[in-house]
Amino acid sequence: MRRVVAMALALLLLLLVGVVAAYLLFLNHTLTANVKHQSLLPTPGVSGAAAPPARKAAAKDAQNILIIGSDSRTTVAEGRSDVIVLMHVAADRKTVTLVHFPRDLYVSVPGHAKDKINAAFAYGGAPLLVETLQNLIGVPIDHVAVLGFDGFQKMTDAVGGVDVYVEEPGSSTAYKYHKGYQHMDGAEALAFVRERHALSEGDISRGRRQQAFIKALLLKSLSRSVLTNPVTLARFVDAGTKNLAVDNGFSVADMRSEAFSMRNLRSSDIAFVTAPFTGFGTAPNGGSIDIVDEPGMQALGEALQNDQMSTYTDQTHTP
């Protein structure tokens, strides 16, 4: 009898391993089939692109991943860059900092003099935006991910909605937003992050909304309710990758490894800041701009270069 029980348990274990392996293969197939790999990082010497800044020894294995939200209705990596967020993952993988760069930030764009930072994406796509940012903060950008807005909405619905912290209450055509945490489905979240004209600081306020939403979605995607639910996880992976383009060096294995390394993150481990600016102004062509805080930008760059963003966010009193 014991031999029969042992054989039954062994068979059950074999079946379980087979199911898990098949599921992992399915997820891997989804990632491989959906994710688009493109030339999103600048190639030194091509179109005048310079080599990226040298990585400082203090940074160790910290990662800087540029997240671009595109409103394109055609190719993902085209259109305007309405979301520009640099995700700094600490070397010990215990903290993540989301740095929002307002799209009207007035900076030097290689080959195009000074302009709004999102003009870099319009002029030369992700590679020129990466080069612009690397010149601005002096840190190499390791990877780039461009996600169409439709992808944000579908990812949110795939995990059953997200709980977003609303800093500034307000309303859109179809929704009302109250101060504090608010559960949002995909359509509501998309309206939340797109609004700017009704907000107190326009694009700056919208940037804080985008950070709050990205944080909520990141936490939900790494939660036990998603990671341990095969159906939910499969839907999330499919939704998130159908409208996703990444740089050619960001392999599926790298993405899986990076996500796994951040599985223990909690809300308090994720901070968000806005790239420093001193106020608002008008460009020579008459457009509204955000004026860079030069000393503040230097301090941000040094914190990123030396993997000291935890100290930086403490000093800047970010939420």
Rank of each mutant, 00 (worst) to 15 (best):
I204L: 15
T282D: 00
F149N: 02
F250D: 00
E302H: 13
I214K: 11
Q153C: 00
G286I: 11
D203V: 08
A50H: 11
K220F: 08
Q63E: 14
D104V: 11
T95N: 14
G287K: 13
D307E: 01
F236G: 01
G186E: 02
H37L: 05
A120D: 07
D247E: 07
F272E: 12
G170I: 04
T228H: 13
N28L: 09
E258R: 15
G79R: 09
F280C: 00
V5W: 13
S221Q: 08
T318L: 04
K215S: 08
T313V: 15
I270N: 06
T228S: 15
P284Y: 08
L14D: 01
H317S: 07
H29D: 12
R73Y: 05
S205N: 04
S108F: 08
P276D: 08
G301K: 06
F260N: 08
V246I: 07
N306H: 15
T74D: 14
A59N: 00
S172W: 00
V166R: 10
D104E: 11
V19A: 15
I291C: 00
A10N: 01
V109S: 04
S172R: 02
A59S: 14
P42M: 09
V4R: 15
K94N: 13
V162G: 01
S261I: 01
T282V: 14
K242P: 00
L98I: 03
G180W: 10
D254E: 13
T228D: 08
E294Q: 14
S81P: 06
A50E: 13
H37M: 05
D115T: 01
V166F: 09
V139S: 04
F272P: 00
S221D: 06
A6T: 02
T32R: 13
A50S: 15
A239W: 10
P140D: 10
K94E: 14
A62I: 05
V226L: 07
Y23P: 03
L14P: 00
V166P: 06
L15Y: 09
N285L: 01
D254L: 10
A191R: 02
A91E: 11
T232L: 12
Q298Y: 06
G45I: 03
F213Q: 02
A113I: 00
G286T: 08
A50Q: 14
A239R: 05
G161Y: 06
P42Y: 11
V246Y: 00
A145Q: 03
V226A: 05
T316I: 14
A216W: 10
A22I: 01
V164H: 04
I68N: 03
G138S: 07
L86A: 03
I65W: 10
Y123I: 05
A187Y: 12
V166C: 10
Y175R: 06
H317N: 09
E168H: 03
G48C: 07
E168N: 08
H112N: 08
T30C: 01
T30Q: 12
K176D: 12
A49I: 02
H100W: 05
F236D: 04
L147A: 08
V226D: 05
G286V: 09
A283F: 11
T95E: 12
D82W: 03
L41K: 11
A21Y: 06
V226N: 05
V139I: 10
G111A: 03
D157W: 06
S310Y: 02
D115I: 02
